[in-house]
Design a protein around this nucleic acid. Structure first.
Lengths: 109, 109
DNA sequence: TTGACAAGACACCGAATGGTGTCATATACT
DNA sequence: AGTATATGACACCATTCGGTGTCTTGTCAA
């Protein structure tokens, strides 16, 4: 099977809103070069590139050079770790949600 | 309905491994005081307390004072945001997973 | 062949993060 | 009453983070 090449924790990679937006943008296209991604953000190319590097380290993004561009592509598979993790806690709001909500309200007043 | 009191991004709150372990520990008990939680970690009480504060700010934890203890309790509900977010990307490995795996392997050599 | 564009690599910076230790206070125990 | 325990509230510190700007190299196009 494919080795676990993840230098970076996936939870860490998706913690930043910019990186989540990158993931979303990448989900909507087949492949997209850095400068086009950069155009979608209020920050410079270097910053976007760094975020993409972090996503790459988490295995969430693949890149290839085409001419002078570097094109990026989403690899959503590592997100399974997140899904598995959060699934475990699903029971805490499916069965106990009402009770917990009550507790929350008690606590808030 | 309950206001959105989240001072802290839930994605951010779960990014730290110590905080994920706290969530897990809290999931296994009804209610637990700070010093008992601290005993489970290789760090000091202050550090654990800070992590719990961050979880509180994300709405993932409730606390109440009982005597001289502060007891903590899990509120898993905000994790729904994570589940909703990741669910969107589920299709990328359920339908396209094979193709993406191939791409990953190409890229790796 | 010259000029514009895309991107990597690097140095730099302020703010946030994740830890520490210490002091003060409230509660529990004997 | 006096001691030990649990916690809050700080001040402090090194490292990481998220951004910047600049310089260089490679590629495309006129």
């Amino acid at each position: 099977m494919s080795e676990n090449n993840q230098l970076r924790d996936v939870f860490d990679a998706i913690a930043d809103p910019t990186r989540r937006r990158l993931i979303r943008l990448l989900a909507e296209v087949e492949e997209i070069p850095l400068h086009e991604l950069t155009a979608q953000f209020p920050m410079g190319r270097t910053a976007v590139s760094k975020h993409l590097t972090i996503l790459k380290e988490a295995g969430l993004v693949l890149d290839r050079k085409v001419g002078r561009e570097t094109r990026f592509r989403l690899n959503a598979y590592p997100l399974r770790e997140i899904q598995d993790w959060v699934a475990f806690y699903g029971k805490f709001w499916s069965t106990n949600m009402l009770r917990l909500k009550q507790l929350l309200e008690e606590e808030e007043e």
